[in-house]
């Protein structure tokens, strides 16, 4: 494994009285896509939100590119080169697609060549450029949320369940887009759709009960049905 871009060591996060993350150890290499799998409530979204500073860790260290970011304010983390795409099709509904994109490019207008590249990945955005984001379909909103995260070059993108509630045809388009996207930037993807995750992921981490219970190559997990059953199936059985 190449030198890590992001590492979490013994990270604990409390939300109110609930102890959600119970010592997360996670290492992200500098390139490729790492997929975070696990059942509902395992702590995947909390892990992303803790990295982004939206929840403060109560214990442990988070290091990004050699710099400690645990406890830093969210805007500082974002300005440091981490983008976050939440699971809720997080667009600004009252603003147009163009304004959503401009908002994401903090250093000035979106670079024309980069915009062409983004339109190549998500052609629907060009078509609806001047429309309010609120009128887009669920899939188009998700594309806009991802496009906004890459309006400027980022070191790392955290993406939370991009396929949730999305039509299969859009998911296929997303696979193509993500395959190209991961050549440019490192991605930490939280996903429930195993086929989607397996077709894109280079590395995998599986969470259960607020801890990482498995780390390795995605290809190995995709090949080994017994391991899948043990990590994902058993995990499901135990908590249903």
């Amino acid at each position: 494994m190449s030198e890590p871009l992001l590492s979490l060591q013994g990270v604990h996060t409390h939300i109110g009285q609930y102890h959600i993350l119970q010592g997360v150890d996670l290492v992200l290499p500098k390139d490729g896509m790492t997929v975070l799998l696990g059942r509902n409530g395992a702590g995947k979204t909390t892990t992303l939100r803790t990295i982004m500073g939206l929840w403060q860790p109560s214990q442990g260290t988070i290091t990004f590119d050699g710099r400690s970011i645990g406890g830093m304010p969210t805007p500082d983390i974002a300005q440091g080169g981490i983008a976050y795409v939440p699971e809720t099709m997080a667009v600004f509904a009252d603003l147009t697609v163009a304004e959503n994109m401009t908002l994401a490019a903090r250093s000035g207008p979106v670079d024309a060549a980069r915009l062409d590249w983004i339109f190549g990945l998500f052609p629907a955005l060009k078509k609806f450029w001047q429309l309010p984001a609120g009128v887009l379909s669920g899939g188009q909103k998700q594309m806009l949320a991802i496009a906004r995260a890459i309006a400027e070059p980022r070191r790392l993108i955290l993406i939370d369940e991009p396929t949730k509630g999305i039509a299969p045809a859009i998911i296929e388009a997303m696979i193509t887009a993500f395959a190209e996207l991961k050549r440019e930037t490192t991605i930490l993807l939280v996903e429930q759709n195993f086929r989607f995750a397996a077709s894109l992921g280079d590395h995998v981490a599986v969470m259960d009960d607020g801890r990482i219970v498995h780390r390795g190559a995605m290809a190995d997990l995709a090949r080994d049905e017994t391991l899948q059953q043990r990590l994902l199936g058993l995990s499901l059985d135990a908590h249903q």
């Binding site: 982004m52 939206l54 969210t74 805007p75 983008a83 600004f92 009252d94």
Partner: peptide, 15 residues
């Protein structure tokens, strides 16, 4: 306007 709609998302964009 972005802050009015969702301040958390605006912060996540670096504002």
């Amino acid at each position: 306007q972005a802050i009015r709609e969702n301040d958390m998302r605006a912060e996540a964009l670096g504002y």
